[in-house]
């Protein structure tokens, strides 16, 4: 009688449902553990983390996650609100003198917001245990950006691109009267032809 109530198709759908819930939970726990390890600088080489990573990286699962968006975590500004960066470029005349200075942005607000996601690269450089190759990669990215700006001005100006870590005073400091934003230069690139 029971088998008639719960036909085979129901079992299939229930299995799919539980499988996807497991995938969602796996991504959630994995990204939470990563976030905590990064923030508190805990050792990532733990049995739990290794297990999560090995399951997370099973190829069929990675393919599924990539094509469905399920790879994401849900921290939403947790564990900590990441520091951000500001990209500014100077336009240089043929003698190398600064003609103008502008904040890098794209044509539309949404594209500019989207482009700020790239700042993860610069943050990784500051906080991660990245190697020399990674630093070279960032230089290549900066060169690409500089070249893009250079072409926007039809080669009329040289470009000095600068990446600054954006540091607004903490709440504690603000209460004490500190209210000036500090910009710390982290990367730069000069592009001329």
């Amino acid at each position: 009688m029971k088998k008639q109530e719960f036909p085979f198709r129901k079992k299939i759908y229930l299995t799919i449902t539980f499988t996807i819930i497991s995938i969602i939970l796996l991504s959630s726990v994995k990204t939470t553990v990563d976030s905590v390890c990064n923030y508190y600088q805990y050792d990532k080489n733990t049995p739990l983390n290794n297990f999560l990573t090995s399951v997370y990286n099973i190829k069929p699962l990675r393919v599924f996650n990539s094509y469905t968006g399920f790879e994401t975590g849900y921290g939403f500004f947790g564990t900590n609100v990441s520091s951000d960066f500001v990209i500014i470029y100077d336009l240089l005349d043929k003698q190398g003198n600064k003609v103008d200075s502008k904040k890098f942005k794209l044509n539309t607000k949404e594209a500019s917001v989207r482009f700020t996601s790239l700042n993860r690269l610069f943050l990784d450089k500051l906080t991660g245990d990245k190697n020399e190759m990674f630093n070279k990669y960032i230089d290549i990215v900066l060169k690409e950006m500089s070249k893009h700006i250079y072409n926007q001005y039809n080669g009329k100006y040289g470009v000095h691109l600068k990446v600054y870590l954006y540091n607004y005073p903490t709440l504690q400091d603000y209460v004490k009267g500190k209210n000036k934003t500090e910009l710390f230069l982290t990367n730069e690139m000069t592009y001329t032809k």
Partner: peptide
């Protein structure tokens, strides 16, 4: 649940610093 959980384990969600930092991000 994880949005809340990830925040509660971050010290700066307990003292207003993270809200302050978020509203003062350059974008």
């Amino acid at each position: 649940f994880f949005a809340g959980f990830d925040k509660i384990i971050g010290t700066n969600w307990w003292n207003g610093e993270n809200i302050w930092k978020a509203i003062n991000l350059p974008f």
